[in-house]
């Protein structure tokens, strides 16, 4: 396997406050990589850094191309889809308009065909198609956010805490569908999660972040088996 995303020595800061202190990590082609860690460890910032939403130093290479310092819009157009924390729903627009925006960078005809595939994954979006997105439940908004990201036809999907604020049953449902999506869409995934159990079950490689540094990395299965890591870092 080759690395789709290769990050070396990534630093990031909000104004004067440094959040990331030299991260090295990679996402393999067709793989799922998880970034784990407590609140404030810098997981969300890492995703934002990849998308050019914060000031960064260090190298971010996507499929052999340096993307650090590029504008968010241009990074997105290279095939990086980001499901942000809080889901980034366009509350005032309809579900349909949200989905059209997901496919904004692609020809309209192609997009409409893709809508049906999204309905295949998330039938509920079809029922809610004409509804204002702000009226959707949290789980439905998460589904919408994932569809919006997939409609970009991305190479790399960045998922920021898809389980946040959702009932366990719905989390299970969404991750079940994510497995299908990974296989059928052929997309590589970088997943940020606080819920380590579910993330490690989904990912094949994982990194553990603590206050802006990577403290442990390895295959997801190894990490989930390691008693001491689980006790000291993942807290279950």
């Amino acid at each position: 396997m080759t690395a789709l995303l290769d990050v070396k020595g990534l630093h990031a800061a909000y104004g004067e406050t440094k959040v990331l202190h030299g991260l090295d990590f990679a996402v393999q082609q067709g793989g799922v990589t998880a970034l784990l860690g407590a609140n404030g460890a810098g997981k969300t910032t890492t995703l934002r850094a990849i998308c050019g939403m914060v000031r960064t130093q260090g190298a971010i290479v996507l499929g052999g191309k340096h993307i650090e310092g590029m504008a968010t819009e241009d990074i997105v157009r290279l095939g990086v889809a980001h499901v942000p924390d809080g889901r980034g729903t366009f509350m005032e627009l309809t579900v349909e308009e949200n989905m059209r925006l997901g496919a904004y960078t692609r020809p309209a005809r192609e997009a409409t065909a893709d809508f049906d595939r999204m309905f295949g994954y998330f039938p509920r979006l079809k029922e809610r198609f004409r509804q204002q997105a702000g009226t959707l439940s949290g789980g439905e908004q998460q589904m919408l956010a994932i569809s919006r990201a997939l409609l970009l036809r991305p190479k790399l999907l960045l998922l920021d805490e898809p389980s946040f604020g959702l009932a366990p049953l719905i989390v299970k449902e969404i991750f079940g569908i994510m497995r299908r999506i990974k296989d059928e869409e052929g997309v590589s995934i970088l997943l940020v999660e606080q819920n380590a159990t579910i993330a490690l079950a989904f990912a094949d490689h994982a990194y553990l972040l603590e206050t802006g540094r990577i403290v442990i990395s390895g295959p997801a299965s190894d990490i989930s088996k390691d008693e001491s890591i689980r006790r000291s870092y993942l807290g279950y």
Binding site: E73, V76, A81, E92, R100, Y104, R148
Partner: peptide
């Protein structure tokens, strides 16, 4: 229109708009 939709999106939610590739 697509452009009109993108303009509305940019007005409502510039961050999410950038993330779908709209040049806000």
């Amino acid at each position: 229109t697509r452009l009109g939709l993108a303009m509305r999106a940019a007005a409502f939610n510039p961050v999410s708009s950038r993330l779908v590739g709209v040049r806000v």
